[in-house]
Design a binder for these strands. Structure first.
Lengths: 145, 145
DNA sequence: CCTTGACCCTATAGGGACTATAGGCCCTAT
DNA sequence: ATAGGGCCTATAGTCCCTATAGGGTCAAGG
């Protein structure tokens, strides 16, 4: 199957510009071109892009994906590190969830502190000025870069 | 109280470069300078930066913070929209948590699919190629930009 | 008085993963 | 012949910093 970039985009749910971006970043190889200089993709390109998208959907960075692709292109290495990679990801995700739940508590604490009036009566603003945090944690425990 | 930028940074847990960045972005007003051209901050600058950091800790964007600051500088407007802002944030955060839990399920599903051998036996790689997702959802339901 | 070193200054570039814009070519249909 | 839709390249912008280069200021120590 030979497809142009727009069709590939539709097949993979990936935007056209993003496909070109992946090519520029070396995740996708430079495809053949038509006489009119259009990119033409074949089955293995489609599979490769699908792989990339699946990895992105798993929250992996492009450089991690690059490593996975390099590995899958090279038949002679052990893949223990992939398990490690996934494990690390799970930990990262758990940390993010924890932080977000924390944040949600803060926000819910803020919500409805405002009596709907003017500035002076706005408890939300007051809380933000004073840095009052929720009851679940110490001030400034939550670190958002 | 009059402090230089380094001390302000320590007081607020905000990096020096970030303070300068906030100034450039118009969140902090341009402070007075010493004869040697050092920035000098006073109490209200400190309070303002603390406010900004609290907002950031609540996951607000700089433009939202800009709006809040503009509001708090202007005594004549109702602040219902602040509650709306917070509510919107809570919803965003809930969505993020949901997505991350979803992602965590996927990753845990991937984990230990690899038998520790070579490429051919690596079930993780296989799953990523095939786009097999976890049992909790349809393929491609999770959308990570 | 001179030097060291911590702190400060500006201006500019980089990062991650895109997204948007400008300006133009290719191809098909009318 | 022209209108449109899709494709091309190159470049800049997004967000919120972070890093770098190349310098100036100031207090303490020799």
């Amino acid at each position: 199957m030979k497809v142009k970039i727009g069709e590939l985009a539709k097949m993979t749910g990936c935007e056209v510009v993003t496909i070109r971006y992946y090519e520029k970043e070396g995740l996708l190889k430079k495809p053949e071109r038509t006489e009119g200089n259009y990119r033409i993709y074949e089955d293995d390109d489609i599979a490769r892009l699908r792989f990339i998208r699946h990895c992105r959907q798993h929250g992996m960075s492009l450089s991690e994906i690059r490593a996975l692709l390099a590995f899958s292109d090279n038949p002679n290495s052990s893949c223990d590190w992939i398990n490690e990679l996934i494990k690390q990801h799970i930990e990262d995700v758990e940390k993010q969830i924890e932080d977000l739940i924390h944040l949600k508590n803060h926000l819910e604490n803020l919500y409805h502190k405002c009596d709907g009036g003017k500035k002076e009566g706005c408890g939300i603003l007051k809380s933000l000025i004073e840095g009052e945090m929720c009851m679940y944690c110490q001030k400034d425990k939550l670190n958002i870069a």
